[in-house]
Nucleic acid binder design. Structure first.
Length: 471
RNA sequence: GUCCCCAUCGUCUAGAGGCCUAGGACACCAGCCUUUCACGUUGGUAACACGGGUUCGAAUCCCGUUGGGGACGCCA
């Protein structure tokens, strides 16, 4: 049988990293077994579902490279089918009409809580005849759940989990307005979509028992289940905005690469020996549900950032250049084709020293400037009168140099040797003059990327003590 | 409250009874490399929650305690 998995978010907000990881696991598992990976939008809650959220989720998945193999199924379009199954259950005597009002149920729950009992429906309409129904109350359909024995779920991650049926009450499968409840819709949809493996968050584990009861009542074959522990914030509590970024798009904003995101998310709660850097192709080959841990894990931004640095260094220069220019544009940094070319030339060096695209853009920003770049305090401090004088001298010397990186380095070394000083004594003031900072790519690379004219302009400006607007 | 799940360095994890003096990675500290910053590299600090069993032997199996998490809607 072909493996079919699905990711089933409800479009009530952005896609957060927990959902992203669930999607990733579903994707990986399907690919690993040459199966299909599907998407179902669970939008049966009309109040809270929004088209914006749907778009956000789709965008997030696309960015992560986790777009589904088929167009998404919208759960709301399937309500007639959900109702059909609910009525079938009713006809089979495996469900019943319940004429309770929301107020009564609320009361029942409060009463139970007060008496220290679990808040469960008492099944008061389970065996009553609909003719006893109070006038004007529209009935909901409840599943006639088994009251004895136990329901056992063989979970691919959690192992065998069992619960006494006495713990479970008769859940509503079709609301009094004729719409399906989540628990019921999920089962019908998963069945109709031919889902073989339900991989989802741990928070659904206890729901699974009830869902199994529906499968059993319909005589449907149950899918395999795999419940993945949730991701917590760094402090171990539920992940929320106060911990930092949680939405996938936020990470994109902050300059994380999708492949780094996926690698990090994969390693969170899943392990394969000592492997840390696991690119997509490799992940597809070795992913196994059995390797998912059973305890919740905490979000570690530092490790994500580290991983992002690794992927950044391996990333294509053209791609990174595009990303940087995009970020320039977003920061309203005006740049021309010359500036773009400089970024491109410098990229092999720039990407060595950045961990996110934001950092990368920040480190590249100095190339965009006519004349002296904005100077930070440390850089300004390097430009002593002596240093300025030396820069003036150096400018004359360098003016005759062939403008190739190798030659520039050689000329600088020669110059330092002739003057009897360490290279650093030359390089640091020069760096300040060229970049406005004490940190930058190798100075020969900077000289080369800037080009003779611009480099000279900046050196001379510094030599003459021309101040740029302070940074 | 009831039910379910979980428990190895600060964090992510390796570990399926002897290979464990518990390994790797991030973070942190120190050294090296070096034209700065990074990268890289070498070393260091740091964990089997606790208590009982089982066993010749337990991080690994069992029970309990404690601690975390999740679920208990005519939400998804």
């Amino acid at each position: 049988m072909t493996v079919r998995t699905r990711f089933a978010p409800s479009p009530t907000g952005f896609l957060h990293i927990g959902g992203a990881r669930t999607a990733l696991f579903n994707y990986l598992f399907a690919r690993r077994h040459n199966g299909r990976y599907l998407l179902r939008i669970e939008d049966t809650d009309r109040q809270r579902s929004t088209p914006e959220a749907v778009k956000q989720i789709l965008d997030s998945l696309e960015w992560l490279g986790l777009s589904p193999d088929e167009p998404p199924v919208f759960q709301s379009t399937r309500e007639a089918r959900h109702a059909e199954i609910a009525h079938a259950l009713l006809a089979m005597g495996k469900a019943y009409l319940a004429f309770d009002t929301p107020e009564e149920l609320q009361q029942m729950r409060e009463q139970a809580m007060k008496e220290g009992r679990p808040p469960r429906y008492d099944g008061r309409w389970r065996d009553r005849d609909p003719s006893e129904a109070p006038p004007g109350v529209k009935p909901a359909i409840r599943l006639k759940a088994p009251r004895e024995g136990e329901t056992v779920v063989k979970d691919l991650v959690q192992g065998e989990v069992r619960v006494a049926n006495a713990e479970l009450d008769d859940m509503i499968i079709l609301r009094s307005d004729g719409t399906p409840t989540y628990l019921h819709a999920v089962v019908v949809d998963d069945h109709d979509m031919g889902i073989t493996h339900v991989i989802r968050g741990d928070d659904h584990l206890t729901n699974t028992f009830r869902q199994c009861q529906i499968y059993d009542a319909m005589g449907w074959h149950r899918p395999q289940f795999a419940h993945v522990p949730l991701i917590h914030g760094p402090d171990g509590t539920k992940l929320s905005k106060r911990h930092g970024a949680v939405s996938v798009l936020e990470f994109r904003e902050q300059g994380y690469l999708p492949e780094a995101m996926c690698n990090y998310l994969l390693r969170l709660g899943w392990g394969h020996g000592d492997e840390e850097v696991v690119p997509r192709e490799r992940a597809i080959r070795i992913f196994d549900l059995a390797d998912i841990g059973r305890s919740p894990s905490r979000m570690d931004y530092a490790k994500l950032t580290h991983l992002n640095g690794i992927y950044l260094r391996q990333a294509d220069d053209e791609r990174l250049t595009r990303e940087v220019l995009e970020r320039f544009a977003r920061r309203n940094v005006l740049f021309g084709t010359e500036d773009a070319e400089r970024v491109r030339l410098l990229m092999p060096e720039l990407k060595q020293r950045a961990k996110t695209l934001e950092e990368l853009a920040g480190a590249a920003a100095f190339v965009v400037s006519d004349g002296p770049p904005p100077m930070d305090a440390k850089a300004a401090a390097l430009l002593t009168p002596e240093a300025r004088a030396r820069l003036g001298d150096l400018a004359l010397f360098l003016n005759d140099a062939p403008w190739e990186r190798k030659d520039l380095e050689a000329w600088l070394r020669d110059y330092a040797e002739v003057k009897g000083v360490k290279l650093g004594a030359i390089a640091q003031p020069l760096r300040a003059a060229l970049t406005g900072s004490t940190q930058s790519p190798p100075i020969d690379a900077v000289l080369y990327a800037l080009g003779r004219a611009e480099a000279m302009r900046r050196i001379l400006a510094a030599a003459e003590g021309e101040e740029a607007s302070p940074a």
